[in-house]
């Protein structure tokens, strides 16, 4: 279980997170929604330790994430970045098997390559893709490779940062389905940040809405449409009028 309590983070005078309280139960898929620039990515990076919160606590299974052994902590995570964040200088299979080629999870290259090809197949890519470089792939293929990398070491927790941004609706649907299938199949805890409502409905068990640095609403996805929360209603229906200012 991931638990965030009163997490705050400012960049200069800009207070991005103003006291976030959120619980993500093990084995569930939580989707964080909110407008652009509301701090969704910062929240995710705070959990991973890429950004240090100014105040508050973040625990994983009851242990403060800042006091845990860093390598052991990160070994439990997989992460799909918004732009894929594939390493340009490495072929696809080495991107996917990056964690399996070095560090505590290191395996022989042949075995790591076989696992990478299997993970590529799992996300719908052919073995021939393995030896291409990221620059030779389309945006959708890069996202799939990023997804394969995120699941390569079979992590307990997977984070997805805007998994469908920049993709056409069909490819976005494919990625959403893949995420749902993989999370269910692996029994992983998932946290996704997005402002794509089709992703929310496809991926989420639970939804949390981040606005103005705090969680405005959280609950099961099937209660989202009847929440009675004016912020959530405005956001999911894409209305310009409401408590959320259209020009921020």
């Amino acid at each position: 279980m991931i638990d965030l309590s009163s997490v705050t983070k400012s960049f200069g005078t800009n207070a991005v997170l103003r006291g976030v309280d959120l619980t993500i139960d093990s084995g569930t898929s939580m989707v964080i929604i909110g407008g652009s620039g509301t701090g969704k990515s910062v929240l995710l990076k705070c959990i991973l330790g890429l950004v240090t919160p100014d105040a508050g606590t973040i625990t994983l299974d009851g242990q403060d994430v800042t006091t845990q052994d860093r390598d052991a902590f990160l070994a439990r995570f997989g992460m799909l970045f918004q732009g894929g964040a594939l390493f340009d200088s490495l072929p696809v299979w080495q991107n996917v098997a990056f964690r399996l080629l070095r560090g505590s999870l290191k395996r022989p290259a042949a075995e790591a390559r076989a696992i990478a090809i299997e993970k590529l197949r799992r996300v719908g890519l052919k073995p021939e893709v393995a030896d291409l470089f990221p620059a030779e792939l389309s945006g959708g293929m890069q996202k799939r490779v990023g997804l394969a990398r995120a699941i390569a070491a079979e992590p307990e927790i997977i984070f997805f940062d805007e998994p469908t941004t920049g993709l056409d609706p069909i490819m976005a649907g494919v990625i959403n389905e893949l995420i749902r299938e993989i999370v269910t199949e692996m029994g992983a805890t998932a946290m996704t940040i997005t402002h794509d409502m089709s992703s929310v409905r496809a991926i989420a068990d639970n939804v949390a809405m981040l606005h103005d640095g705090v969680i405005k609403w959280t609950g099961p996805v099937d209660r989202m449409d009847n929440s009675g929360d004016p912020y959530l209603d405005q956001f999911i229906h894409g209305r310009a009028e409401g408590p959320i200012e259209a020009v921020r």
Binding site: A85, L86, F87, D88, R149
Partner: peptide, 17 residues
């Protein structure tokens, strides 16, 4: 710098590197 801008540095960290 390009790796930083495209989040490849963050990706390295999440991959325990």
């Amino acid at each position: 710098a390009t790796m930083k801008v495209t989040e490849q540095i963050d990706a390295l960290v999440t991959l325990s590197t």
